[in-house]
Simulated scan of single mutants.
Amino acid sequence: MLIAQITDIHLGFEPDNPAEFNRKRLDQALGCLIGGPNRPDILLATGDLVDRGDVDSYRRLANAFSQCPFPVYPCMGNHDDRASFSAIFPHIPVVDGFVQYVVPLDGLRLIVIDTLEPDRHGGAFCDIRAAWLRARLEEAPATPTIIVMHHPPVEVGIAWMNTHPEEPWVQRFAAAIAGHAQVEALICGHLHRAIVAPWKGTTIAICPSTAPQVSLDLSPIDPEAPDNRPMIIADPPAFAIHRWGEHGLVSHFETADEHVMLAKFDSGMQPLVRALIGERPV
């Protein structure tokens, strides 16, 4: 099973431009998924779907998703607005005021959770959401489960985007999944970079964005002393392909730009392919 992921679309960053840069980048990524060799079974859109939380941007997002020949499952990010989102995506469940739901697949469950708190850039996860998540995990303790969310609950070293491990929402989320060995992985966005990290006995896979990426700078930052470091960079739009199989989840990250072919599978490469495959046990 192939599970594609896009994240941090930020549609509507240029609200008066119907051909905005972020829409072009989104279409570029979707084009790779739809027309490329790895067409997924489903697509996850992990938050910051739009930039200003407005209904018109969600309407244009729905238009972009309408070209997908596979189901799309979105979640909330800190730039999103639940009411505006639900006005355009009324089929996505809202429970106790939060966009949270379960996607049952063949031998796998996806649990989509809501880490949005209005007017806060970082994540949030209250007692109501935690109780809902615990209940969903208790329903199927033997079924492998992936939790889908916008904010990663891990410190990654990019100082101005970091999540502190002692933030209350992180502690609350960690307690909600503690003891549930079926949680195979967390699939996240928010950081506009490809990052993989171990966390609390599971693995966090963070997808790069379709919108411009965050610069990789792991040095400390002083909020009182601007140092002209790059923060947002014009790297290509990107996406993830998560391959679920009998040995678990394997995550691949890809850019949606042109890839110059240096070799192809022809008769000249055939001996190498035969040899490599021949080394594997039957």
Rank of each mutant, 00 (worst) to 15 (best):
E155Q: 15
C207K: 01
A140V: 08
F253A: 05
H150D: 06
D16H: 12
T163K: 05
D80R: 09
A140Y: 12
P230V: 10
I277R: 13
C68T: 07
D127A: 15
C75V: 15
F98G: 01
S84V: 06
D266Y: 07
P165F: 07
A159C: 08
E155T: 12
Q171T: 05
I147G: 05
R39K: 10
M161T: 11
L216S: 12
G179Q: 05
D16P: 00
G278T: 09
S267M: 09
N17I: 03
G268A: 12
G47V: 11
E279I: 01
D96P: 00
F125Y: 13
D16N: 13
F85A: 09
E258I: 15
S219C: 04
N63G: 14
V72E: 07
Q213F: 04
G201M: 08
T203S: 01
R280I: 10
W169A: 07
E279K: 15
T255H: 10
G248K: 00
A124H: 15
A29N: 09
S215C: 14
E279L: 15
R243N: 00
A211M: 06
I113A: 03
P226E: 05
P18K: 06
A225L: 13
M231F: 15
H192F: 09
I9Q: 08
Y73L: 12
D27A: 13
A205F: 07
A240D: 03
E117F: 04
P141E: 02
G179L: 06
R280F: 08
I158S: 03
E254G: 03
I187D: 00
E138Y: 01
L116Q: 14
F21K: 13
A131N: 06
F173Q: 04
P144E: 04
E246Q: 11
E279C: 13
H180L: 02
A178V: 02
L186S: 07
T46V: 06
I42V: 15
D114I: 04
G35I: 02
M1V: 10
F125I: 11
S84N: 14
F21I: 07
T7D: 06
E138T: 06
G245F: 00
I113C: 02
S84P: 04
T203L: 02
R60L: 14
V260A: 12
